[in-house]
């Protein structure tokens, strides 16, 4: 059923994006993708880029749908974002974390805002720099209670991100990198609540992405996301290896191999990450 929903969302997005005119003032690929929590970014890391192809006198609307099929779980995420003058990004996302082995699911709503402080991802001497926050409201706190989270209602992550494209830097290929510092108390994105027996304070986690555009339409890269380890059950850092296809400024598709480590007691969770972002306006 969830599989069908993911496919139909993806298909509906595809239809919508082919029939509307989007803000196109940015260069192809410089809008980035949509990360798991709904912010413009890579796949698991929010970037300094503002989601959508809006330039400084345009606005944009984007929608995304993502599914990660792990050994014992499945994460579905979908949402929308608005980009204003390539300056401000506002996003809303819904995550459904299916406990496919145990049964049941955990839902979470995420509202994000990001603002660009400095620079242009291609043209400025220093990286484009943005700050943002993600407010997360947990809808199903049962599992968070069970695993010993100190708070299981809501939480806010704050981040500072820097992103830079180096034209032709790698034997003529464009290199893109991003580094993000995130202050957070969230356990597994907040799906398992906030804080725990090991730690109940904000900690700064580092997250990074590194990619290469192997052609105008195809990017490959890696990501790393450091994670807190607040609970008695272990939480690991996340990694992925991704391939993104960007046929035009209306849509992009990403497939990744995600290695998310131990999650809520289930060992070494790995699986295929599929995502699509459509640019509606």
């Amino acid at each position: 059923m969830k599989q069908v929903r993911f496919l139909s969302q993806t298909f509906a997005l595809l239809l919508l994006t082919q029939t509307t005119l989007a803000g196109e003032g940015k260069l192809l690929a410089t809008a980035g993708l949509t990360q798991l929590e709904g912010s413009g970014g890579g796949g698991i890391v929010p970037w300094a880029t503002v989601a959508g192809y809006d330039s400084e006198d345009e606005f944009s609307v984007a929608a995304f749908s993502t599914q990660v099929n792990l050994d014992d779980y499945r994460l579905n995420a979908w949402g929308v974002s608005v980009g204003i003058y390539d300056r401000i990004e506002i996003s809303a996302a819904r995550q459904t974390f299916d406990l496919t082995s145990l049964g049941g699911d955990i839902n979470q709503n995420i509202f994000g805002v990001k603002t660009r402080l400095y620079g242009d991802v291609i043209y400025s001497a220093w990286p484009q720099t943005s700050i943002g926050l993600q407010y997360k409201k947990l809808q199903d706190p049962g599992v968070a209670k069970l695993v010993g989270a100190k708070s299981y209602d809501d939480g806010t992550d704050l981040y500072l991100a820097m992103t830079k494209v180096h034209l032709g830097a790698l034997a003529g290929y464009n290199l893109i990198w991003n580094i993000t510092a995130r202050a957070t108390k969230a356990n597994q994105l907040g799906l398992l609540g906030y804080g725990g027996i090991n730690n109940n304070h904000y900690e700064v986690m580092l997250e990074g992405s590194l990619g290469v555009l192997v052609s105008r339409q195809l990017a490959i890269g890696v990501e790393y996301r450091q994670k807190p380890d607040n609970l008695a059950i272990k939480e690991d850092d996340w990694k992925d290896l991704f391939v993104t296809y960007l046929p035009n400024k209306h849509v992009n598709f990403t497939a990744a191999w995600a290695q998310l480590g131990d999650i809520a007691g289930a060992k070494d969770q790995q699986g295929l990450y599929l995502s699509m972002t459509g640019y509606l306006w």
Partner: peptide, 8 residues
């Protein structure tokens, strides 16, 4: 020249 026109 606007940013959109430059990028275009």
């Amino acid at each position: 020249i606007s940013e959109s026109d430059f990028n275009r």
